[in-house]
Each structure stands twice: as structure tokens, then as C-alpha cells.
């Protein structure tokens, strides 16, 4: 089971672009009684498609440094981002390999007075929901979302590679559906349920085409909103809807929430304190319609 004291791995996108997600998460942690500490020295995880694409050794070294800092100064890590989760968990996995490159990276990290990375757990916000739901979180829920049809978008890196992430089935995930049901809402399955949001595709029009196909399918399945566990997927669907409208005139009007925001609302955070009006697709109607 997840510990009640964790170290926050903030990443880049949430603190620097979407602090409203951080706000909701901090409210959530406080309300369920999990102590989350902030420690200094973390950098970008680093980001697992571009930085990793530039150089695996560099990517692993930076990830190892972050894991080493957590090990030396903090404890098990909690992240709100699939990118951070994927990088840190994959790196931790890589550090158990005996490839010569990996051994050299470990030597380099130790030379900076940090321990060999690998002995701490890397948890995603979704892990916390899964592990603490029954004993802790379910008892803190004050508001329900009766009648809301919710499309979960897991984001690739929460689920895959499944042998490393070990979160849920990579093509038939159910863990987060149980959480949505416990909140009184209905999780809707739609065509392309576990497909990518398209964010990492470099060609922007094609990238948005991937997002558009998913949004269309969610709408057809009757979704009232999309809930995501990742700021990159959040941006792709929220800001993405503005871009899609500009480029193709297609309008979906599907509000997007991070799981931490949905949970903060269920734990009776004042909606006006959560910065939801920073979202590009308005959330206010959804909140007034379903939160009771």
C-alpha cells in the first residue's frame, strides 16, 4: 500500500503551465491526510519522447539524478504526469539491467554524491487512487457526480509498456473506471478507448487529427467530459480543441479535467478556488449540472 508520506515530483508542465492541476492535487493530498513534501533539486524528468529521442544515455542520466535526489533527501515519489511516471519508472527499471552503458551512467550519478537509483517507488496519482481508494479516499468523498457520463483517457504512458508500468491491462484498463463509478458517474467506453492522444506526433495537423478522432468517438458514446491523468494529454485535448476549431471548424465542446481536479471537486473543494476558468473549454456548466 502507498505510504502516507510522499515526495512530490512536480515535473515541468504542471507547475509551469497548468498550476491549477497542482492546486487541485495539493487540496486532494491535504484532505485525504497524505503528507506530500517538496524537495529542491529536481529537474525535468526528462521528457520521454523528445529528450529520450535525442539521447538515451543523457535521458537516463538525468532521470537517474532525479531518482537519486529522491532517494537521498526524500522518499517514494508521487507524480501527476504520465511523462514523468514513464521516464522515472522506465529508468528505474533500466538501472537493474547489466548493460555497460547503464553501469557507466550509475558510476556518473554516484560521482555526484547521489546513491545508485532504484530503491524507491515511483507512484502516479492514479496509483494512489487505486491503492488508497477503499481504506481512505472513499470515506472523504462529499460530492457525487450522479448522471455524468465520463470518458476516461488513460494516456499511453500510464499503461504501456505494461511489463514496466504494471498499472492495468494495456488495452482493457478497468481500475480507473471503478473510481468513476464510486463517484456516482458512468465511465463510458468508446471506439479507440486506449488510443494515443496524438500529442507526440511532430506534424501538428496529423497530431490534432489523432485527438480529433478520439474526441469524436467520445462524443458519439455520449460523454459529458474527458478525464485525463496527464498534463500533456490535457493540453492536447483542451488547447487542442481550440486549434481543431480554428483549423477544421469542428467543435466538440467537451470539457477536460485532470483526475486531481475531479477528485478535488468530489472532496468538496470550492470550485471557484481551483482555477477551472483557466481551461480553454469551459468547465463551469459541467460542474453546476452534475456536482451534487
Amino acid at each position: 500500500m502507498a505510504q502516507k508520506e510522499l515526495t512530490l515530483f512536480p515535473g515541468c508542465m504542471i507547475p509551469l503551465r497548468y498550476p491549477q492541476i497542482e492546486k487541485a492535487a495539493r487540496f486532494f493530498f491535504r484532505t485525504i491526510g497524505v503528507e506530500v513534501s517538496d524537495i529542491e533539486g529536481f529537474t525535468c524528468c526528462p521528457e520521454p519522447w523528445n529528450v529520450k529521442g535525442a539521447g538515451l544515455t543523457e535521458w537516463l542520466t538525468i532521470a537517474g539524478r532525479n531518482l537519486g535526489i529522491a532517494q537521498k533527501h526524500g522518499g517514494d515519489l508521487i507524480t501527476l504526469c504520465n511523462g514523468c511516471y514513464s521516464t522515472l519508472k522506465e529508468a528505474k527499471h533500466a538501472f537493474s539491467s547489466d548493460e555497460r552503458t547503464v553501469e557507466e551512467v550509475i558510476k556518473r550519478i554516484k560521482s555526484t554524491d547521489l546513491p545508485k537509483p532504484g530503491d524507491i517507488r515511483v507512484l502516479h496519482f492514479a496509483d494512489l487512487l487505486s491503492e488508497l481508494w477503499e481504506p481512505v479516499i472513499s470515506q472523504c468523498v462529499k460530492k457525487r457526480l450522479e448522471g455524468a457520463n465520463i470518458a476516461i483517457h488513460h494516456g499511453c504512458h500510464l499503461l504501456r509498456p505494461a511489463d514496466v508500468m504494471k498499472f492495468d491491462d494495456p488495452f482493457d484498463p478497468e481500475v480507473l473506471e471503478r473510481i468513476i463509478e464510486s463517484l456516482g458517474a458512468t465511465p463510458v467506453r468508446y471506439r479507440g478507448y486506449t488510443d494515443c492522444c496524438g500529442r507526440a506526433i511532430l506534424h501538428r495537423d496529423k497530431s490534432l487529427d489523432v485527438a480529433s478522432a478520439k474526441l469524436d468517438s467520445m462524443k458519439q458514446a455520449g460523454a459529458d467530459c474527458v478525464v485525463v491523468p496527464c498534463p500533456a494529454c490535457f493540453e492536447q485535448f483542451d488547447l487542442g480543441q481550440v486549434e481543431i476549431k480554428r483549423k477544421t471548424k469542428r467543435v466538440f465542446d467537451l470539457p477536460v479535467l485532470h483526475f486531481s481536479q475531479l477528485l478535488a471537486l468530489a472532496l468538496e473543494a470550492d470550485p471557484s478556488s481551483l482555477g477551472l476558468d483557466y481551461h480553454r473549454v469551459p468547465v463551469v456548466d459541467l460542474v453546476s449540472k452534475f456536482l451534487s
Binding site: C156, R160, P161, F171, A200, L202, H203, V210
Partner: peptide
Amino acid sequence: IWQCATCYNCYE
């Protein structure tokens, strides 16, 4: 190659 979405569907 830079159009790869790194979705890991192929991996699975």
C-alpha cells in the same frame, strides 16, 4: 521516424 507517437501499441 519523428512522427512516432511513442504510444507503445507496437511494443504490446
